[in-house]
Computed example of a mutant assay.
Amino acid sequence: MTTIGLLYPGHSAEGDFPRIEIMLDSDIRLPLFHTGIGEDTHTVEALREMGSAERLAAGVEDLRLAGAEALVWACTGGSFVYGREGAHEQIATLARAAGLPASSTSFGFAHAVREVGATRVAIAATYPEDIAVLFARFLEAAGIEVVATRGSGIITAAEVGGWDARLVKELAVAGDHPDADAVLLPHTALHTAAYIPELEELLGKPVLTANQVTVWEGLRLVDRRLWEPALGALFATREPPPGVTETRGIVVRE
């Protein structure tokens, strides 16, 4: 059995993870360890507080006791708002505290874009525009070309957690761009696990969503590759595209 511990803020779309665990139908376990979110508003200040070392540390000990082999900070906004260097230090701190390989959803997106062979992406975000732009800058710092960025102006994770399939599809379509090789939906508060094949059929290209990417990133950390096309193009490949060199993220050796 492989156990990947997920530090997840709040409760907005936590149901995606047991759904994904069932879809994978393997020996993978994805226990969630909730962290506090403080003020539920999508501002830089609130997101930085959500991703603070003090808040994340609260879930680390329980995660270790659960026998996790790796951990992922299952939050995008609470990572990329620190910038690439700050986000790297954030997961380095987590890795040192847990003594485990660690990463975050934000870094997972950067790795997943390369996994599906994309070089140019469009961002379809529920965030306010200024927060969506920060995610674009994070990806650009990783060498990924962002051809379009759409923010939806949603202020709280609670509201995003209530979106249904129709709203998710409308978001993806509105955020797509003809020059994009893939479309990214970056919010872990958004339910997407049940809709990914429909989204990809609708857009005719890979769609990467936050909770899907979070699980894939955890599997990458422990060198597990699982085939599950119901989770989209990201889970329909077994080997990285030619020329892609993988990194495992932050790894702590005791």
Rank of each mutant, 00 (worst) to 15 (best):
A97C: 03
A124V: 04
V146M: 01
R96I: 02
L208I: 00
Q212Y: 03
I28S: 06
V244Q: 10
T188H: 14
Y195N: 07
A53S: 15
T126P: 08
K205T: 00
G175N: 03
E254K: 05
D62F: 14
A58E: 11
G77P: 09
M23A: 14
C75I: 00
D223M: 00
T105W: 15
T156P: 03
R220N: 09
A98P: 09
M23T: 14
V222M: 05
I154P: 04
G204C: 00
L71A: 06
A97K: 11
L190S: 04
V44C: 07
R220P: 07
I154R: 08
A118T: 15
V116M: 05
I123T: 10
D164M: 02
T156M: 05
V183N: 07
T245D: 10
E140D: 01
S12Q: 06
T237V: 08
A13C: 07
D27N: 06
E200D: 00
M1A: 09
A68N: 09
I28M: 14
A236Y: 04
A157H: 09
Y8E: 03
G108C: 06
I91H: 09
M1W: 04
Y127F: 04
L7H: 15
V168D: 02
H34Q: 12
W227G: 07
E45G: 12
A141H: 07
D179W: 01
D27T: 11
D181H: 14
W73M: 02
H11G: 04
T245E: 10
L32R: 13
F235P: 11
E159R: 14
G59S: 08
S12H: 09
V183R: 12
V81L: 14
A194G: 05
T237G: 05
P206E: 01
V222Y: 01
D16Q: 13
E69V: 05
G117S: 08
E140N: 07
A92F: 08
S26Q: 09
T245A: 08
T76S: 13
T209W: 00
E89M: 04
V183S: 14
D40P: 14
A112V: 11
A189Y: 10
A112H: 13
L171N: 15
P18C: 03
A118W: 01
A110P: 09
I28W: 09
T237R: 12
G204F: 02
R224N: 04
L65F: 11
F33M: 10
E228L: 02
A165R: 06
S26P: 06
R114W: 02
E228A: 06
R253V: 11
T41H: 13
E45K: 05
A74K: 11
E246K: 08
T105D: 14
D40C: 05
R64K: 12
A68S: 13
F138M: 00
T214I: 01
E246S: 06
L234D: 04
A236L: 12
A136T: 01
L185K: 08
G59L: 02
I154A: 02
T247Q: 13
V133A: 12
R64L: 01
G59R: 12
D179V: 02
L203A: 09
E49Q: 10
A193S: 15
I250D: 07
E61H: 13
D179A: 13
P18M: 04
L185Q: 07
A70L: 04
E246H: 10
E145N: 01
K205Q: 00
S106H: 13
G153R: 03
